[in-house]
Design a protein around this nucleic acid. Structure first.
Length: 205
DNA sequence: CGTTCGATGCACT
DNA sequence: GTGCATCGAACGT
């Protein structure tokens, strides 16, 4: 583990599609109080860009919930979806330009026992590749809830680091699970990686 | 394999 | 009151 560098704010203060692609292979780390740290490599992301993107939470303009999107880059944006799943985003672009990258899947690296304990609540314990596969599962495995909203990813218990990992070739395709703006190919994943949710094969035009 | 569908809470109109 | 940036169980083929 020669390199464990926390990503600086400048990393996030760039065009969202660039940030999304560069986040692949970076490592999400959560050091919750009194718990063993958990870490996983990002293998799947989606970009949500601006008020003109109908699927972005900023589409209706500023509201109480989407305020973090309008704030400085490098901050987390977490919200509750379908009444039961927390979804983790990293805010991008300069302050005032509402955009973010949704972290959809991680390949577990450290703290696997903690992830299994958090995921195993009901039903069987998933295999390792499935522990943080899908944005809702990811948040459960990593202990991310609304308490992790608006955290500074550059300097807090929740952050994203560069461990010098190399991932396989990337694919781009339509975003998953949205009913508007599904035409934009703003989902990026490591082609064929077992920890990717939904379709993980190469993009098929 | 594939598709359907219920659970579940809250922001927003 | 409506509609989700989801998940997994329960079917059908």
């Amino acid at each position: 583990m020669a390199v464990r560098q926390r990503l600086p704010r400048a990393f996030y203060c760039r065009p969202t599609l660039h940030v999304a692609e560069d986040l692949i292979g970076k490592v999400v780390v959560h050091r919750a109080r009194g718990r063993a740290p958990v870490a996983g490599a990002i293998v799947e992301v989606e970009a949500y860009i601006g008020e003109s993107d109908p699927a972005c939470h900023a589409a209706p303009g500023p509201t109480g919930r989407n305020a973090p999107l309008y704030g400085p880059p490098g901050i987390s944006y977490v919200y509750l979806n379908y009444g039961m799943h927390y979804l983790l985003n990293a805010v991008t672009e300069p302050e005032g330009s509402p955009a973010a990258v949704l972290i959809r899947a991680l390949a577990p690296l450290e703290g696997l026992d903690t992830m299994r304990r958090r995921r195993g609540g009901r039903g069987r314990v998933p295999d390792d590749a499935a522990l943080a596969r899908g944005p809702g599962n990811l948040s459960r495995a990593f202990g991310v809830t609304l308490r992790q909203n608006r955290m500074d990813l550059v300097d807090s218990n929740l952050g994203i680091e560069d461990w010098g990992l190399t991932m396989g070739p990337l694919s781009w395709g339509p975003r998953i699970g949205i009913r508007v703006g599904a035409d934009r190919p703003w989902r990026c994943w490591v082609t064929g990686h077992p920890a990717v949710s939904g379709r993980r094969g190469p993009a098929t035009p």
